[in-house]
Each structure stands twice: as C-alpha cells, then as structure tokens.
C-alpha cells in the first residue's frame, strides 16, 4: 500500500534505544540523548513536557510534568478519573495553554505549532456524533485530507485515494456512505482513526478511544493500533484507564495523578507504581513477559 512507503520506519534497534532511554529523557537539555549515543533533535521528538503546570479555577490539575514521547513509542497515559490525563493531552495538542512551563510538539511550542499534518487526534467523543449530524463517513474521513486554507479548494472535486486507503486500513470501507449518526461507538472511533490516517501522521494521540466499545470491538481496535505502531512506525499516545489492555499493547507508560507517578517502559511498571497511582494496593500479573514488552 502506498501509505506504507510514506512513513519513516523505525528499526527494532532504534525502538530498543528509545525504550531504554524513555525514562531518562526528562532532561532540560534541548537534544534527547540515548545511552547508545542516539541523539534526537528537538524537532524529532513528538511530544515533550517541560515543567508543565495547568490549573482550572486555581485548582492545579497538571503539576510539574516532565517527560518526553520519543519517535516510534506506543505510550500509554494511565491514571484514575480526574487525574489530568485529558488535560495533559489537550496541552500536548495546543488546545490549552500551560500556566507555566512548556509543551513542545516536534520542537515547537504546542500553542503556536503549525505542522498539523504530522499529528492525528482521536478524541473520546465528538460533539457531533451524539446528534443527527448529516455527514457521511466518507465526508468526515475526508476532513483528514485538509492541508490548510485553499481559496479555490471547492473546485477540486477529485476523489482522494488516500481517503479510500485510510478507510480500508481502519476497516470501515463498507461504511463509507453511512450517516455518521448511524454508526456504533466502535465504528465511530474507527472512522476518527481513518480521518487521522488520511494525513499520514507521525504522531497519533488518542483519548480513551475504546470507552463504550464492547470487548470484541476493543480487541479489534487494539490490534489495529498495534499495526499502525509496528508496521507504519506511527508514534502512538493513548490515554486509557484500562491497565490490562495497555500493558499488553504499549511499549512505554506514563502514570499520571496530577503529577507524574511513573514513566518508563511498560515492563518496569510494578505494583508499587500502580498502588501509588490509584491510592490502594494493586497487584500486577504478567502472563507473558515476551508479549508485554516489545
């Protein structure tokens, strides 16, 4: 598929380096350096939180967050309700402005970032899918091909092959002409992923994408995201409260409860970190260490 050719593949050795270094990337230097000497320029680092603080009505919900998401990572952001996970993602996408500190998106402050074609976003819910929104799935997926204001864009009525490819990858090609409001929650999430894939992003940010999806749909969804990360090298950041699923799929993990409780490779996530996160004792059972840490 042509879409495969567009994405810079991340080799296994790079991934290993990234995983090794993810917990030590919380430095204030401009370059993100690894133990093995792999140095990433700031514009190569998808997301970097640097002493980030944010409050709603003087109540801090994000406190002094410092960590980076490096290319090729499948990072899970874990935390209980109200822990600031969604706020953190909104800061990362420039939808909120940090009170102090900064958030860098590919080396640029998120609020003034302009290379949006590099970023895909799948929110938990969209306001339109809950109403009788008249658009077809194809129309919504086609939003992903937006590349900035084009005064005479309306004259271009060509059918984009990228849109067809993205729908095929997300497994919704048969729903192309369905009305958005007729889709199930799982199908809507797949549509939003397809919309993000049209632009062939380097980074895909997802906020609790499987909330409200049944178990079978959840498994399908996770296997699709796994493919995007492994086969296409897309950096994935997924906010989740489902520890089990995340431990199976993600390579790194950041546990947030307003401040950062743990950040590192998933296999280092232990009961102590999770107990600290949720405020009560949590046991971690690793069924298959080979599978859990890729």
């Amino acid at each position: 598929m042509p879409i495969l050719e567009q994405v810079n593949p991340v080799s296994d050795s790079d991934l290993t380096n990234i995983q090794k270094t993810s917990s030590i990337n919380d430095t204030k230097s401009h370059n993100i350096a690894s133990h093995s000497g792999v140095s990433l320029r700031p514009d190569q680092v998808p997301i970097r939180f640097d002493e980030t603080w944010f409050s709603y009505n003087s109540e801090p919900v994000v406190k002094d967050i410092n960590f980076s998401i490096t290319p090729g990572e499948f990072a899970a952001i874990l935390g209980p309700n109200g822990s600031g996970k969604t706020t953190l993602m909104k800061l990362a996408l420039g939808l909120l402005k940090p009170e102090s500190g900064q958030v860098l998106l590919f080396g640029e402050p998120a609020e003034s970032f302009t290379d949006w074609y590099r970023v895909g976003y799948v929110p938990q819910r969209t306001q339109a899918t809950e109403s009788r929104f008249p658009a077809s799935v194809r129309e919504i997926v086609n939003f992903g091909s937006y590349s900035g204001f084009r005064p005479f864009g309306f004259l271009d009525r060509g059918r984009s092959t990228r849109v067809d490819e993205a729908m095929e990858m997300a497994g919704i090609e048969q729903l192309a002409d369905h009305r958005v409001s007729d889709l199930s929650v799982g199908q809507q999430q797949r549509m939003l992923i397809a919309r993000s894939l049209v632009r062939r992003p380097d980074l895909l940010v997802m906020d609790e994408p499987v909330a409200g999806v049944d178990a079978a749909g959840e498994e399908q969804f996770h296997s699709m995201v796994r493919r995007l990360n492994r086969d296409l090298g897309i950096t994935i950041v997924m906010v989740s409260h489902d520890i089990g699923a995340v431990i199976q799929e993600a390579t790194t993990c950041a546990c947030i409860n307003r401040d950062i409780v743990f950040h590192g490779p998933v296999h280092q996530l232990d009961a102590q970190a999770l107990s600290g996160l949720y405020g009560f004792p949590v046991d971690v059972l690793m069924h298959d260490p080979e599978h859990t840490h890729r």
Partner: peptide
C-alpha cells in the same frame, strides 16, 4: 461544526 477541537488540531 463536527468538532472544534478536531478542527483546530487539523490546522
């Protein structure tokens, strides 16, 4: 109209 946040992240 579909979603203002998604639109913003789309540029």
């Amino acid at each position: 109209t579909f979603d203002p946040d998604l639109a913003r992240v789309n540029g």
